[in-house]
Design a protein around this nucleic acid. Structure first.
Lengths: 241, 241
DNA sequence: CGGCTAATTGATAAATTTCAAGGGCAGTGG
DNA sequence: CCACTGCCCTTGAAATTTATCAATTAGCCG
């Protein structure tokens, strides 16, 4: 058995969730995947709370998130914080250098310990990757639109359930194999900052989801025992790639 | 005087807000602008409430908004509506054909009478337009992130003021010249659906802005007599292109 | 003058925040 | 080993914001 494992092509079981995600998206040959892998620079680690930035000589740069979670955060003048979007392993993050003309807000910060690789920008010029890039951008925008819908029109209960389902789908797309179990390294405070809720209210809402058996906390993550019902209740619809 | 007017190059005073916006963004030659203009198909009109769709043979298509306002709308199963984003003259709208695999929600609908031109997609392959396209995409996401911040972290008062300032900046970028006066063809119900507020509450909030002399209604629009103060109060920061 | 749609108002209910505090648990150093 | 500290989760009570419900008014157009 071990021999069979080793005989597999490299791209078949990468421990890199970005590659796994591309593989599952389909439309790429094994050579394409390898080419993409070669366009990744060595990973760099970041401690929680550290800001993810582009090299100083670039205004904006893409990094492939290998492990850990990050988020784009905006801070208001009185200290209120909003996590605009969450990044999980497998995501490609557009980061700006803080010195660039970019606003000092909207920075990408590590929410846990993070490892990420810079991506050689020219990779996107090649034939199969140009379309791929568009598709990834489109999916990222779809997530932002989900976020707007949650914050604008849903109750706390719906918001949280909807977000958890979205994270489940995203994790599944990047190689998370255990169905209905998702990783959840965020504190309730971070979840609240994402969903536009106070920590207190997020806590009570989470308890309600647990009471109703829609969520079960496990070590290092949570289980969604009945995603179909939760999806119905929270109007969740899968993200179409 | 009339003769001087006619002698001007065509691209200098187009009645097409999309061209005007590109011109003001800078970095494009007069020939580039003309090339872009040639990539526009004849405008098509749409009545309010009508859905803007791509041709059936395309999954997704871009249309340049010439006049009137549109919005991307999501409708929940119980009828709640969220206007995800607003489109004003000068914007380029990514529309999907409703029959495409795209979800039946997230359609682009005309909020007023609208005129828009399809864009020949190959225009974006050419040299100066590839970068331009990226920049336009980036600005569009910046608007979405603004929207997330408003809905997630701001009070009704802040949300409305912030949105009005954003619309002012966008209108100025597309040729609206009258400073501090913006067009506002939306009903209070539509504004509420954008800002995640009920019509009733939006109305009261608008009255408060008027009471405090932050907004003055004029025929077909509104005036923001003191945008600097309003920007400070609502944490508004200009969109960096 | 109807007949529409949009704006406005008042009273009440519901969702969410705020404030203040307590409890669990892991790491750390005496 | 135990006290100590920091971080996170949890709880209760009260205040605030926003939604809901139900009319009423204002404009506009044919």
């Amino acid at each position: 058995m071990k021999i069979v494992e080793l005989a597999r092509p490299v791209h078949h079981a990468p421990d890199n969730p970005v590659l796994e995600r591309l593989r599952r998206m389909g439309g790429l040959s094994a050579e394409d995947i390898d080419a993409f892998q070669r366009s990744l620079y060595p990973p760099r680690r970041l401690a929680p709370r550290a800001t993810m930035m582009a090299e100083l000589r670039f205004p904006t740069v893409q990094r492939a998130l290998i492990s850990g979670w990050a988020g784009r955060v905006r801070i208001l003048s009185d200290g209120r914080r909003q996590l605009i979007e969450l990044f999980i392993p497998g995501d490609i993050v557009q980061v700006a250098s803080s010195t660039a003309a970019a606003s000092p807000n909207d920075l990408v910060v590590a929410l846990t310990e993070v490892a990420s690789c810079a991506i050689e920008p020219t990779i996107w010029d090649e034939a199969p990757f140009q379309q791929l890039g568009r598709r990834l951008d489109w999916m990222a925008t779809a997530l932002l639109r989900n976020q707007v819908m949650r914050l604008g029109r849903q109750s706390a209960y719906e918001r949280l359930g909807h977000l958890l389902l979205e994270l489940r789908e995203r994790q599944a797309a990047a190689g998370g194999d255990v169905r209905n179990v998702i990783a959840m390294p965020l504190t309730q405070e971070m979840l609240g900052e994402t969903l536009g809720l106070t920590t207190v209210h997020l806590n009570r809402t989470m308890q309600q989801l647990r009471r109703e058996m829609m969520v079960r906390s496990t070590r290092l993550g949570m289980e969604l025992p009945d995603p179909e019902t939760l999806a119905r209740v929270t109007d969740y619809q899968p993200i179409e790639g």
